[in-house]
Design a protein around this nucleic acid. Structure first.
Lengths: 169, 169
DNA sequence: GCAATATAGTTTAGGCTTAAAATAATTTGT
DNA sequence: ACAAATTATTTTAAGCCTAAACTATATTGC
């Protein structure tokens, strides 16, 4: 009987009264909460234990993954922050003797930054502690749950990247 | 045969050579990537479409959830940012006529902030667009996958909250 | 070759963020 | 009652972040 109240054209009805997406909204808020919770926890421990900021640690982590350093632009892309931002963080780490800066051989515009020996050792110490903090943050999850999350977040990452890339320059 | 190479005491071996937690580390990086991807996308769209910053939108979102406003401290806790931060954001929104500020009746220290009528309408418009952006960010995931993620992130949230709360004041 | 375009990095202005210290008001313990 | 501790907010200094404008170098298309 209630069917009589339904509009004949479902599509136009969907347009005039758009579908609710509260589930996605709640998921986003929960994702953000998790992320912020861990990020704030790590930030605080890095400061208290090693007197280092999270952005500087993150930058060193990117450099630790490669042998021969990388350009500022590559750091910017990998860290997903704007390029104007990298300059100051690199400046600070170079001033502390943790980073080495050199012009690229075949491109006078570009600069290659890499960890100094001091920097690589300092990062090694911090990274070991960091790994334990993260392990304990996920300590209540089983291996199976970790794998599930990895898989679902991979799909979410791809979905979001596609959605937000649509209509870019 | 290889068993002969194993130490007799597994516990002490685990201490001298701590377990690797690369899986948790990769999960954290993926979670952070997802979060940053969506956050940056939303930030850009809010600026381009409504000329508003993400922190101001987030603050209005908190106030929109309640009828009678809340104190600055409550905003600080809910948004998981430091309290000194809230002051400036509220100041800006009050100056734009989007927020109302009043002293709490029974506590002269506290101030209650709430959305003005203008603020609530402006937020309504932005929230509708925001909801669609988030829906499209998760557009590739099935309902079942959304539910799975919600559940797993709830566990992760609880785990991380417990881990980082240990040893606090 | 050379002008137009693109890329690498820096600088600037404005805004967000934190931690820590300061102010003011409330609550607690005696 | 009243001193001590707590709570709400603001202020400060330092650092991170973005977008946009700018400089310098490289690449592309005639």
């Amino acid at each position: 009987m209630d069917d009589l109240a339904q509009p004949l054209d479902r599509e136009s009805a969907a347009d005039s009264q758009p579908a609710s997406h509260k589930a996605e909204l709640r998921l986003w808020l929960r994702l953000l909460t998790c992320s912020t919770l861990i990020e704030n926890g790590v930030r605080k421990r890095l400061r208290e234990t090693f007197d280092v900021t999270l952005p500087r640690f993150d930058l060193m982590a990117q450099l630790d993954k490669v042998q021969d350093g990388m350009t500022l632009g590559e750091l910017s892309r990998r860290m997903m922050v704007s390029n104007g931002n990298i300059t100051a963080i690199v400046d600070a780490l170079v001033a502390q003797g943790l980073l080495h800066r050199q012009s690229a051989l075949h491109d006078k515009r570009a600069q290659i930054v890499s960890l100094t020996e001091t920097g690589r050792m300092a990062f090694g110490t911090m990274a070991a502690a960091h790994e334990n903090w993260i392990a304990s943050a996920f300590g209540d999850l089983t291996t199976w749950e970790l794998d599930q999350l990895m898989d679902l977040l991979a799909r979410a990452k791809h979905s979001a990247a596609t959605a937000f890339a649509a209509g870019e320059t």
